[in-house]
Amino acid sequence: MKVAVVTFPGSNCDYDCYKAMQLFPGIEPAFVWHREQDLGGVDAVVLPGGFAHGDYLRAGAIARFSPIMKSVSEFARHGGPVVGICNGFQILCESGLLPGALLRNDTLRFRSLDVHIRVESTRTMFTPRYREGQVIRMPIAHGEGSYYAAPETLAELEGEGRIVFRYVRRDGELGMGSNPNGSQHNIAGIISADGNVLGMMPHPERAVEEILGSSDGRGLFEALAAHRTGVAA
């Protein structure tokens, strides 16, 4: 499957995503510049991390109006798989493809460290390779990753099982020391109501080989490689 990696001015994880996906037979990554109108017949889209448009105004606020985002929204509306990682998650929230917003970390610090996250749902197209409740480890690197949504939206996410990843301690538990940024309900990743748009702050593309310190992100790309939606754009 052909997977677009969208590069915005200020993206800095686009090459990581590209390189990571090259490790998986069945995935053919392709860079798409944000000024393009057309995704070029891809089967999935990755919005990588970084600081698109310098994160000016709010992270993702300006990237959301990049020309390519019209096609990304269209692709998502037709059920095409879209994964937003870190800044990509922020862009998905700003563009309304995912609910809520990512606010300044409650620590007021840029947090760059390995975290443990728990796989809360394996019934998504992105997570069937994991076990329900499995604790995996991958890095975060962000200043604005504190997930916020209105109470009714949070209730909806919880009720519909759309919280895919939650920050936990190494032992898999919530509570003291588990939440690196103040996210509500320890949210690290959520999925759209239609189940085809995933946003997450942690970086699976930086956890695909043991030499990187973890290969726990592989499951996500393996699932992507195996996925057939029949939606192309």
Partner: peptide, 8 residues
């Protein structure tokens, strides 16, 4: 449209 985020 842009200057404020209606969620926050």
């Amino acid at each position: 449209k842009l200057l404020a985020n209606p969620v926050t």
